[in-house]
Amino acid sequence: MTRPLIEAVSLHRYFGEHCAVNGIDCTLRSGEILGLLGPNGAGKSTTMRMLSGTLVPSSGSIRLNGIDLGEQPLEAKRSMGYLPERPPLYLDMTVDEYLIFCARLRGVEKHALHKTLEKTKARCGLASCGKRLSGNLSKGYRQRLGIAQAIIHDPASIILDEPTNGLDPQQILEFRELIRELGQNRGIILSTHILQEVKAICDRVLILNEGQLAAMIPLNPPPQPENRQLTIQLSNPVSTMNLEKLPGVTAVQALGENRFHLALDPTTQTRAVAEQIIGYGWGLEEFVSGQPDLEKLFIRLTQGDTST
């Protein structure tokens, strides 16, 4: 396994008495697109600000590309690009001026400037508006410019805070294409509160609620037949270890609150698994074949204890 691009351990952040982020762990590997999902105020932006080095965590550690952000902030930040919730544009600069400044700021060498600039503009669909003033751009273009500044120095990891905010459907499609392309050899974390977006592009999703990690769900595992996957709800607490010991179960994913996602051996009958669970007396309440439904899960996780 390669070294993770981003590795955050037990992040906490307090604003006065209020705890905005309470013990979040997260890792991002190269080639992975990680989604941060959560309602407003769940701590998505705070987490991303901490990961991008613009906010120092109250406790916990962050390593970017193996370098500790607290100890060597400048070196650590070199491998990272960040788009805040609001694109950080100087409205009185032209697109070219702005991107050149960002490139220089992030350490792009002078001789490579021109090439980098043209490449980034082409990638983000800004090729035709290099001479335009940022302040005169439409919202969609401003968002593209924001993304452009985050990727101009070709960072290994990219942190995007609600990147599709303000884009029209066509632009959103283009954006997804860009993210997929960028994600092939980089790591990307993006936050959003739009479920479809996460489904469409993310490999993995972290669901945050009230500053805590509510669930971590892999979305794009290697393709498996629908009936080879199960989501179960038990009434008694059971460890994942016990579930893994069940014959025919190849992988177990805890979804929280005694809810689990199981992957099955191709030869195993789903009925046999159900019988076994009942046999152990774990109190099977729900038994759904197929992938976990993200929407239901999200609503359940973020709406408190309505299911119990």
Partner: peptide, 14 residues
């Protein structure tokens, strides 16, 4: 007020 300061903060600049 323009939110551009996060650009400087996230850059490798002290």
């Amino acid at each position: 007020s323009n939110g551009t300061f996060s650009l400087l903060l996230s850059a490798p600049v002290s």
